[in-house]
Design a protein around this nucleic acid. Structure first.
Lengths: 215, 215, 215, 215
DNA sequence: AATTAAGCGAGACGGTACGTCTGGTCTTTAA
DNA sequence: TTAAAGACCAGACGTACCGTCTCGCTTAATT
């Protein structure tokens, strides 16, 4: 999962020519790491490009040579965090859903993840390019979890096989929005803990509801 | 609904003493209106205090005398928008839910609402005072919709009466997070339309799931 | 000398009408005193009207009702200091000059006097109204010292009587500029002490030079 | 005379390291020129750093990188004006003194010179660092005129050679304070013209007085 | 005693300038 | 050609004062 191709995250890093001093690979890593560290300490609005450069031991120019602005940098710095999410087979649909809900909650408990996610989403409300980047770097990549969960449940006989691929896609989207939305809202907006008890009750609601979609 | 007491939104405007020139009430209104207008045009990150002041025909000092920073100002400017949401009786739980989902989606289609909501949530991930302010000014106030919806459904016989008030509260919170979270995620993160069809399928999932919570 | 009429120092305080509450005399005194105190502590450029008002225990309005700006206020606050200068008869022209030089130096050693004098002079370089006010409130009033000194010297036979009143006036002005200029320059620009030794040598130069003017 | 080393006027411009973009030399010149222009138009108290920056076609940051405040900037902008003073040999001590008095008066007739000189002196009455800067940048540099004048007079036989170097220095200081002080006081405080007639009479007084110092 | 006209304190008002900070660019020397 | 360093322009930040303007309250002199 972590091995998913990441070339989209450094679009300007691709070598265009072959002459001259090559770009430092350490710089890339140091910048992304520094970005995450700065996010934890300062939050989005107080994070500055100059500060990130200083933390990374890098000149501001080096930073701007790779990312055109703060948003793009933060998306890339954070996208990789979401690739950590996995769906280990726990033997039943309910157990799988509970597992991924708690994993997601754990991720959102990390300051750099919560801050960065909401910050880039906020900026994307008035920046179409950013919205596209978020979709491709974060949202679409994680729908794999829903698809995988359904496939396992179908293999176990907990869910019927979909005949209509369009309906399947729509259900994938719906379930993804419900799960991700509810967890994010609980954790960040309502600011209440996503604990075992909440995960259990949410999963009960969700799995019961999913059953009714098949008809 | 709109008549809910709003004193919390101008906490520093209340007369503290009785001497000196009183604060201008027009200034308050003009500033909040200007803030919403600026949000629509510029978005969160390009909104500046100076610009808001200019639009409102007010000195920057007047603005800072009332709100200490951009976050607080925007929360107050936007909170009132959410008071517009209503729950007209459409005859059934399903119809009521669909109605409120579409209303909420319509609200999030307005640039100032979507931008401001996400921006303040993003900032609140590293600002406790702001998180508290958002909860009291926006989140807690809108849970009334869930409570009202359940009461109607119970009156119609669609849902049983809760005996345990603690369980009722937990369910209120859960349902609120699922509805608000799913709609926000669909509209702002996935960036897909919340149309009649989606609302119908989401409501189906939700109402079916709610039924299973009662046991 | 101190008893010279001072009405020019409070031009706006004169009663214009006869009805209504009369202006507070204590306020006037408190403001001028506070101005001098503020000058000592803060210097000219950091002295603010608001601060003077606070020190005087008076509202800003009360201050502006009497003086239209900082310059006028400071001139009035300081002019009175220069009225302290006297010319006690020490028995000879040389002794009289040395005495007044040291008196003037002592006055310029007081922070409020030196700061205020130079500040208002500086402002007057681009403010004609202020220049006029300084001339009438300070400069012209102190020329009495030169006139008095010459009269005494003439009475003693140290200087001949002038026949041409125009020449006498020109000499008064010249001597005044030389004495005041040299002391101020030594004390404030060169920033060297005006001590007995300097006063003695300066007086020697001056009195010798005065002798040659008579021809 | 104009070629006197001026490094003291741009103390922060010296290269400290060797990497990084060097400071713009044009910016320095443009700023000082803009400062003088602004002084002429606006006077001291209405001169603003932002306005100087605009006139110089320079960002405010660039200005603050070189001078920490208005006083330092103005001292440097003005010091160079005083280097224009010269002492051309007119054949006699009296003619030399009259010449330099009229030159100095002409300088003080220029608004930027008179305003700036008095303003920085005024500020220096409560700012020791500024006083030191004025002494080194303006006062001490112009004493060369007195020294040069005496040397010429001695060469012509108009004045005896001093044996005691300490006495010579004290006389230099005294004469400098008398000349500069009298001219400044006449021009700026008394606000009367320093014309040929006044210069002639002042010089008569001064040169006669100087003779008596030798004994 | 009641009226009245001004003065009084407090403090908000629209402004201007401050000195600082950040963003994003450009220019230097060194590798 | 890239790197690090750091100066560059532009412009927002939040603060401090400016001089003006309500307020509600004295405080005399005039009715």
């Amino acid at each position: 999962m972590v091995a998913v191709m990441c070339s989209h995250t450094r679009p300007k890093s691709a070598r265009t020519g072959r002459t001259g001093r090559p770009r430092s690979v350490e710089a890339d890593a140091a910048i992304l790491e520094a970005t995450r560290a700065a996010l934890v300490e300062l939050g989005w609005s107080k994070l500055t490009m100059g500060d990130v450069a200083t933390r990374a031991g890098v000149a501001k120019t080096t930073l701007y040579r790779r990312w055109t602005n703060k948003n793009e940098l933060v998306v890339d710095a954070v996208a990789v965090l979401f690739d950590e999410l996995e769906l280990p087979d726990r033997g039943s649909l309910v157990a799988d859903v509970e597992g991924v809900v708690l994993q997601f909650a754990a991720l959102l408990a990390r300051p750099e993840a919560r801050t960065a996610l909401m910050a880039v989403v906020a900026e994307s409300t008035c920046d179409d390019a950013l919205r596209v980047r978020i979709r491709s770097a974060i949202v679409d990549r994680q729908k794999r979890l829903v698809v995988q969960g359904r496939e396992r449940a179908q293999a176990r006989g907990e869910l019927p096989y979909e005949e209509d691929p369009g309906a399947a896609a729509r259900n994938t989207d719906l379930i993804f929005d419900v799960v991700a939305g509810a967890v994010v809202h609980r954790a960040l907006v309502s600011a209440e803990p996503v604990d075992d008890e909440w995960a259990r009750r949410f999963t009960l609601l969700l799995v019961s509801g999913i059953g009714s979609l098949q008809n």
